[in-house]
Amino acid sequence: MRLLFVEDDADIADAVRGNLERSGFAVDLAYDLAEAIAATESQKYDLVLLDLGLPDGDGLALVHRLRRRRDPVPILVLTARDAVSDRVSGLESGADDYLVKPFAHAELVARIRALLRRPAQHLGDRITVGRLAYDPGTGTFAVDGQPFELPRRERALLEALVRRAGWVVQRGTLEDALWGFAEEIESNTLESHVSRLRRRLAQADAGVEIRTFRGLGYMLRAIGG
């Protein structure tokens, strides 16, 4: 995975490159627009990380240039501008995603992986929450390395929750996961599935809890995390 990081601030460029290299990416640096253009024309990158405020022009000029050349390379804009209008103009000009400074490294890596459209397991990742582990490649769960068997609807529910572990998953999304089985859902179906799932997780001592946010949805998180 070779990334181009276009950033005029040497301090941030150096620090972020170090982190990305430790996460297994190869990173080239470009300090201004001219260097970035030269780099994209001589080398094929898997992804471009782009700061918008560059000394010799607006980073969006690079986006325009790449898209005019029909270069499909994913572009993740890293910027200090956070207004929605900035985001919209960035995305409209052809950037794929937008991250506002300062950002956590984990968030940056998550966005990069999403843009590379590589299933997580190809990067050697399983999702673990508490003692619960999920393998997206096979769609199976394990607790402390032991396979954790579930009925298919509860497994679908847990999959939806574990993919957004630590964040609220809205009711609608969970209902869609259940609807996938093309069976009629009664009004209390989601609640009853969640409570059954809670019991199973507790019995298996998975070290996770499902929190209810009434009016919003559910969140899977490690107990005490």
């Binding site: 941030i12 620090a15 972020v16 170090g18 200090a80 501008r81 956070d82 506002v100 300062p102 490294h105």
Partner: peptide, 18 residues
């Protein structure tokens, strides 16, 4: 101002992440 204030914070954050 946004750029000048957030860029050093981003650098610091990246250093802490390391």
């Amino acid at each position: 101002a946004a750029h000048e204030l957030r860029t050093p914070l981003a650098a610091l954050r990246a250093r802490i992440d390391a």
